[in-house]
Design a binder for these strands. Sequence first.
DNA 1: GGAAAAAACAACTAAATATTTGCATTTTAT
DNA 2: ATAAAATGCAAATATTTAGTTGTTTTTTCC
Lengths: 208, 208
Amino acid sequence: MNTTKPKQERSRLSKNKILESAIEIFAQKGPAGTRVDEIEAKAGVNKQRIYAYFGSKDNLYRQVLLKVYAQATENEKLLKLSEKNIPEMTKTIINSFFEFHQQNPLFWRLLAWENLNGGKSLSDDDWKTIESNYIEHLRELYKTGQEKGLFDKKILFSTYLISIFAITFFYYSNQLTISNLLSLDMEKTDFQSRFINEVQRLFVRATQ
Amino acid sequence: MNTTKPKQERSRLSKNKILESAIEIFAQKGPAGTRVDEIEAKAGVNKQRIYAYFGSKDNLYRQVLLKVYAQATENEKLLKLSEKNIPEMTKTIINSFFEFHQQNPLFWRLLAWENLNGGKSLSDDDWKTIESNYIEHLRELYKTGQEKGLFDKKILFSTYLISIFAITFFYYSNQLTISNLLSLDMEKTDFQSRFINEVQRLFVRATQ
DNA sequence: GGAAAAAACAACTAAATATTTGCATTTTAT
DNA sequence: ATAAAATGCAAATATTTAGTTGTTTTTTCC
């Protein structure tokens, strides 16, 4: 694999096209199901380029995860929240997560593949480079909220956050099976917005 | 593939050993990652038997899903709930789901693979054979609870149930990535029992 | 315009893997 | 005990697929 700095802008573009195509295909088919030839076709480059820039299919997958995780751990809107927003912060978080999944429909898939893979695709060092900008900020706000009596003191921040993660993630990740099981259409925006509202209501009442 | 009734009990046993082994390996590696040779080795039968009894790897996977889904949609404890149990039913459901995942650690994996696969492994007819015994029962109880003023009338049963499904499923399915992200050990029974308690508290307060 | 870099083309290698086949052996039901 | 059924054994086939290689063409930048 070529690790030296590229001398031409063009190579950066090709590398990027490969990575973008890889994100889509890995998300769709998973690491085991993905064919390098398919990435080649989608990226419109020669297979040789993939090996020149990424070395192996495994490393390409790793780069895909690093890129997508990095995107997911940024969140302008949540970072902007301040003490005065504590009363409505639960609603804001829930909205923000639903919105994120809507705008990044591949995210839950990549995360799901990775959990199934036992997380072996990323090293400990890789994980260290993935640091969430917003989580510690929310933790502080939650703590302040608890001190002010706005949040239930008996519910840990981690319980609170994991639960919201869970519901927003699951709504997309298990839509197919749940729709079948409960005979309803979770894709409908009607259903979805009602669901979001009720989840907000549920959490607001539960934690205050 | 041989579809006629077996003439000897032995064949039923072999078929079962294959299916049980297949459940574990498909859950672990997923449909694309599973090797027929590995099932052969684990079941301790000849590969020929797999093709004789199941025809193809794809159909074997289908049979795995049908069996596991059928197991999951039975729940004695929840079916036994009656009107007088409505006040504590939320706690019972949450406990029951956590317990199920603990006792069936492969379940979330098979479900996750299947959602990622777009559910294409099962036909509509297959889905018709999978009917949940307990869901309609819970729906009735929830409705009665709402009428009696024990549950929030503004929260749909589907929202309530999906949310509980979500949290219990996610706790296991995303344990790895969340533990890394929030720097905590979700496998510890201490953490887990505290989490369960707080989720119960959260839902009880939220819905009543 | 020309050298260096980037990329395409196209065929190839090597390994993995689903599926098949023919035959020998063991087990079971009657 | 014996024929039928079930299974084991072992090799073969055919396909898929990650990764490679040598050569030619195109693009970029000075």
